[in-house]
Amino acid sequence: MGSIHLNKVSKVFGDLKVIPSLDLEINEGEFVVFVGPSGCGKSTLLRLIAGLEDLSGGTISIDGNDVTNAPPAKRGLAMVFQSYALYPHMSVRKNIAFPLKMAGEDKATIDKKVEDAARVLNLTDYLERKPGQLSGGQRQRVAIGRAIVRQPTAFLFDEPLSNLDAALRVTMRLEISELHHELGTTMIYVTHDQVEAMTMADKIVVLNRGNIEQVGSPMELYNHPRNLFVAGFIGSPKMNFVEGKDAQAFGAPTIGIRPEHLSYSSSEGAWKGKVGVAEHLGSDTFCHVHTENSGTMTLRVSGEAGLKHGDTIYLTPEESRIHRFDDKGLAIA
């Protein structure tokens, strides 16, 4: 239960092709993350799957059934919205019970399911409160509670953490991952934050301008980005790109090297540069090095680096970690 198949799906708003034509296979029980910059069509894609938008072309099937023209309610999916979309005039209990009530379940069943969900989500003490009296994290949990009580075939998350502060985001990230392991239900998760994608996904779908740039596991995307876009988008801090003569020296028009795969020396190396700002995170230090020919490069140093602003250093990439790209920006195998 919970496999979703998109076949040549496209979406046009007026003259604007948001999604030109796209195929995607989502397997049962997978945690799939759609990631990409804003305006890449990831939310639209989610809404197409949800049935909140019409397809301009193509078909969507869930568990082998064609749902292309089915209304949202008939698709058996549950969605958690960016704004949580809680019903402000209903208590937490009624919010969570709402989909069950719409499904016509009897009161005893509803009560039991709501209380089970509340226990799982640590909401038991808040059942009689209104959403307005809850913190951001609690609201998020209510939204999730409303989604899980229906036992949907798949969960859809539309940037669910973007309204939370940084610390809470980390906690909720773990909670959602934990929930996925517990329920084993298919989850589709939309985010613009590649860290969320990397940490949560079984499968990441990188989208850019409505096209799928690459589909793969987090480590596949990290180790073998198919093109410059994915290489630049996945990984933090961003991959350094080198073009021109310095790249030719390594046998490609463009090469990419992640900050964590650079080493430095004060006397010799591939690229000479001056140390700029150093960001100290405690566990790591990110140094921004102004190289002579290849712009500013980021260097990751484990622990505390003994580098000062203005020092001259030499950077050397780890040979096996160099990503090579051809003229069209595609990775050279």
Binding site: A73, L77, M79, F98, R150
Partner: peptide, 8 residues
């Protein structure tokens, strides 16, 4: 939309 998803 949430309420539509909830089957209303």
């Amino acid at each position: 939309e949430a309420c539509r998803m909830d089957g209303a």
